[in-house]
Design a binder for these strands. Structure first.
Lengths: 257, 257
DNA sequence: CTAGTGCACTGGTCGGACCAGTAGGCTACG
DNA sequence: CGTAGCCTACTGGTCCGACCAGTGCACTAG
């Protein structure tokens, strides 16, 4: 019945072929971070295309966060180590275009941070515990030194937990979503009149989370982490969205809701 | 002590300004999906730059998944609806460059899918329940019709759950990570000798999950969903990584480990 | 009224040109 | 002899003008 199976032909542009080749070289490790690509003028020779085409390919690679070029650099473009920048931009763009609400973002952080704590409670090393303690100590000192420093210390704590979870994907997503959420509410947090009280309460909550992680009680750590997140951000989430957040708080089976 | 606070100056390239303007127009809604940008030759007039510069900007926008251009199209580039393609590519690239293991990916899916079910159990509408049932029915029919169809029905189920969670971010991440995982193991799943038995067991598990979602028992649905995922993929995860996955399975507080 | 043809556009690619940067070698001065 | 400063040969960023292969639409010939 059916003759030979024909595949749809997609016209492939020259610059795409270049992107593919360079991408492959980077992801396979043939090109490692810090190394330099040949100059654009060299590349046009190697690929037998014009410089415009080479440049369009480099623009794409740069947009994907794989290389960076700098005018005047006697070497060519630099191969970058992976950075979640591209991931973060996609998500931030997603947040705006799709109209992601603050509630959804916070909810997502509750999920990720809870899971990170659950795993960290079982897998953390003594060194990582020390990092978490140090981060909380920095938070204490930062109470009198302004919101920026407090936020940085808070980041250090959550990052230590995420690393202790042993899952790089969780770690990166936590960081990405965190920065998006902060971009939405940082000014309101920094200007809150009861800022200092908020910080102190947050520190207390973090101490409780840390205690659970230290005790190896993952479910407790997860629950506390979710509640900490909720308490910290719920005030900025429209009341209509809060029930969805609270759905993540009561883990026991007989939750009345 | 300190004089005026100077900000570091970053030289901004012409094409970046164009990208920013178009991006802003799209994300603010001034340009909506389906609409067309002016032609490159028009744009060079509007931005007062050369066509090369316009094209580099368009390449970046295209790499970010915001527009698409087609040779010969009498209109200009088309504004695309948001698609997680860019997000997916960043994550897939992350998976390769950072050496994300299958274990980490599956673990991440367990976290997301578990949370999606937890939320879906509380928020699902009757219509969404029907979709889930229909998806399972399709899975049953697909057992005798090949792996591809089964996988598609499975996707439909998980997508229905994710949508029912009410969190678009979870929905998108579930989809993105799922496709990456499938890219890693699809061939092994399709060729498994005990393929049919695997499918039947998976269907049974999905039915249990659905029952919990229907009953509104979120924690149970979450636990079952995580276990379903574990059972389905654990065989492909190196034994050394499995304990980290199992850490997500036993939620009871008194976990002995 | 329709089928076919051409034209006026589109994006993709090319080549050449100029500019403002940068780095590193070279020179001239101390 | 050492160093401060210049000079040059590159880099990437931008511009220009040109050509090609597609596409859609209006116009024309049947």
């Amino acid at each position: 019945m059916s003759g030979p199976r024909f595949e749809p032909v997609r016209t492939v542009r020259a610059y795409e072929r270049i992107v593919e080749q360079v991408e492959e070289a980077i992801e396979s490790g043939a090109l490692s971070p810090g190394q330099r690509l040949p100059s654009e003028r060299d590349l046009m020779g190697q690929f037998s295309v014009s410089r415009s085409t080479v440049r369009e390919a480099l623009r794409v690679l740069q947009a994907r966060g794989l290389v960076r070029s700098r005018p005047g650099d006697p070497n060519g473009a630099e191969v970058l180590p992976f950075s979640p920048d591209a991931l973060q931009r996609s998500m931030a763009s997603l947040a705006r275009v799709e109209g992601l609400s603050l509630g959804e973002l916070v909810q997502f952080r509750m999920v990720l941070d809870g899971s990170a704590n659950l795993l960290a409670a079982r897998l953390r090393t003594p060194g990582q515990l020390a990092e978490m303690e140090a981060a909380i100590e920095r938070m204490r000192e930062a109470v009198t030194r302004g919101y920026d420093e407090f936020s940085a210390a808070d980041l250090a704590f959550h990052d230590a937990v995420a690393r202790a979870s042993g899952n790089k994907l969780i770690q990166i997503c936590v960081e990405v979503v965190r920065s998006i959420v902060l971009g939405l509410v940082a000014d309101r947090l920094a200007d809150a009149p009861d800022r200092e009280a908020l910080m102190r309460r947050s520190i207390r909550h973090h101490e409780e989370v840390l205690a659970a992680v230290r005790d190896g009680d993952g479910p407790l750590a997860a629950r506390l982490a979710r509640r900490t997140m909720y308490d910290y951000y719920a005030g900025y989430v429209p009341a209509a969205e809060r029930p969805a957040l609270r759905a993540l708080l009561d883990q026991p089976h007989s939750a009345p809701e």
